[in-house]
Design a protein around this nucleic acid. Structure first.
Lengths: 225, 225
DNA sequence: CGATAATTTGATTTTTCTCAAGACGCGTGG
DNA sequence: CCACGCGTCTTGAGAAAAATCAAATTATCG
């Protein structure tokens, strides 16, 4: 597939729209979006709001989540540089989104995507495929929350994060223990204790609380079940 | 929307394809599928198998699930009469599917749907929307598994099931306690105890272990959080 | 350097799981 | 029609996992 096809049909707008660079001519102009910078914990959109835009992380990280009426939170996913989020088939956002630390995102008008999909079958297929990828992630997450132990959840999480980060030496945790807990269906104390336990077992090292080094990836994979 | 539009664009093949009847002329012929009957616990497809078909439940119920290597099971969803399942954007099934009790399903060739989507933007949009609906269900399920108590999980489950069943008087449980447990991320004992507890509190009645009567729907809704 | 927030650790409680036994339901065959 | 056997469901007691409450330690930021 050509670079142009990628830009048009997989909405890899990061490649198409090297905003700040000089390649604005690549990709259809409708896909251009403004770059927006959000500060730590800033809301990007709320659950139930009209889904006027989809987003792509340029730098930083974003969490999407749902709340129960008493404030309990379930984080659906963490979105790192290059990840798309907030794309909806329906008219409203089904989760809320917030910046974790400072984050820059590219904003893409949903109507532009819909218009493109109405014209171009490959584009429509690409939108479907993006949503299907979200679904697959959610289904794996269900297995984690429904059937894995705390230790297995943490191990799965670390491996997943590592697989998504280019730099392989040490994994960076852009999110707090609370965020991890709310993603893993645990408490911060359990997350912390589990990390400590993995460290004591020599499976990982924690040079700082936001950095993880894999000392025994095989042991982690076994825990991944 | 006309009946024809429904058939073409929402893949409501049950309406279009009254197989065994005489209305075979309704709807595009590609959407026709064979009716297949599965017996109790029969596998319809397995995780990782090529997704040659999508399915629609005609009668009975179907469970879709994932397994961990040691046999732990997470049920992703229960599919009742009228529900579509097994539709994939990618080339393989991401969960396994089995009949719960005896079930009849309509089989729809995936290539027919893809072909239609390639021709017809509305059809393509409908496929996307179906996958998005699955995603929404999965996201609500994540909140349930990650953050709700056993009692809240059971209450949510019963309300969800009731909302999907036409007959409002008593809710029918087509699945075993084990199936419920594997959907709710609990054990059969906890499910059973929770149902008993709700009965003792006067919130539900259990005329038989597969039937539930709501005695206090408001109390259930409160538990739904 | 100090204040504040985040993380870790400890003690205890709660929830849910596990193991075990008994009850119930259902189909089969006498 | 009833007895039996088998699978499912319920109930109980105890154990385990994770949550909660609390305090101490460490990191972060001005």
């Amino acid at each position: 597939m050509t670079a142009h096809a990628v830009a048009r049909h997989e909405f890899d707008t990061g490649a198409a729209v090297r905003v700040g660079g000089d390649s604005l001519t690549l990709g259809p102009v409708e896909l251009m979006g403004a770059r927006i910078r959000y500060e730590r914990d800033a809301e990007i959109y709320g659950e139930g709001e009209p889904a006027e835009f989809a987003y792509k992380v340029i730098s930083g990280a974003v969490r999407t989540y749902k709340l129960l009426n008493d404030g309990r939170r379930q984080i659906g996913g963490f979105h790192l540089a290059g990840d798309l989020f907030g794309l909806e088939a329906g008219v409203e956002h089904r989760l809320s989104a917030e910046a974790i630390g400072e984050a820059t995102v590219l904003v893409i008008r949903r109507s532009a995507l819909l218009g493109l999909a109405a014209q171009d079958a490959d584009a429509a297929r690409a939108l479907w495929t993006l949503t299907a990828a979200d679904l697959e992630r959610a289904q794996n997450h269900l297995l984690l929350l429904g059937r894995k132990s705390a230790c297995e959840r943490v191990a799965s999480f670390l491996l997943d994060l590592a697989a998504r980060q280019p730099a392989a030496a040490t994994v960076d945790l852009p999110m707090s223990r609370q965020d991890m807990a709310d993603y893993l269906g645990l408490t911060i104390e359990t997350v912390s204790r589990t990390l400590t336990q993995l460290q004591n077992e020599g499976v990982i090292a924690l040079p700082s609380c936001r950095k993880v080094v894999f000392c025994n990836r095989q042991a982690l994979s076994r825990l991944n079940a």
